[in-house]
Amino acid sequence: MTQIESKKGMFIDTTLCHGCKACEVACKSWNELPANSAPSLTGNSYDNTGKLDGENWRHVKFIEDISDDRKDSRWLFLSDSCKHCQLAGCMSVCPTNAIIRTEFDTVYIDHDTCIGCKYCITGCPFGVIEIGHLSGTAEKCTLCYDRLQAGQQPACAQACPTDSIEFGEVEDLVTMAKKREQYLQSAGYGKAQIYGDKNILGGLNVFYMLEDKPEKYGLPSDPQMPQKTMVGGYWSSVFSLFAVGLVSLLSFRSYRERKFKEEEETTTGA
């Protein structure tokens, strides 16, 4: 196991994000990710990226929250990526330990080990991971592991013009976020809330300041580890084994009593 040297993460303050997508471009530029082939308008606000996947490790969501009479008009932006969870579903289900925790306490996919079984895709409660078209392995944000190793901040954080993406030690970021939350709540953002504190999967290294409840942003309010439903699966397996065994045996044996009767019928019938 890698020794964790420092806990790095990002604090993404959506109240400062104006949806310029510089983070998306910086991410693709640094990580040499190809542009989507034959992109077309999605029709969903200004979001033409659509989702996180093997080639899009950052995705700015555009949420038009506007009432019919336009009295309440909000346009929310959220720069989404891998959250580098403390309890990482993807890592927990990986059959090859290809998903590892780095010395920066981030979640990283070791491409040399990944076999492309796609299981981690279902393990992530946020829909972050997908198979890269070029690599053929699972892909997601690395928190710019290579830049971190060189003492730099991730490309997106560096490119963000409004400091909506703050990179640093998770502990410092949490302190900053708590202060910010207090400020925002006093400044008219009544529903401002931190998303990704300890209560979410043991804490997200990449966490958010939201203006409203997580569901508004398409984030699960209470994400779980995939293993939460595994136990039920095993219990039902045990039950099934007994049930099917018993039914089989009984059916097999019960045939004895009726055997001759049926044989007689068959003979006369034929």
């Binding site: 989702k51 895709i121 279902t122 991971i129 942003y217 398409g218 984030l219």
Partner: peptide, 11 residues
């Protein structure tokens, strides 16, 4: 449009 469906991915 909402992002409910994109928060999860099919493998």
């Amino acid at each position: 449009y909402n992002y409910e469906l994109t928060q999860l991915k099919s493998p």
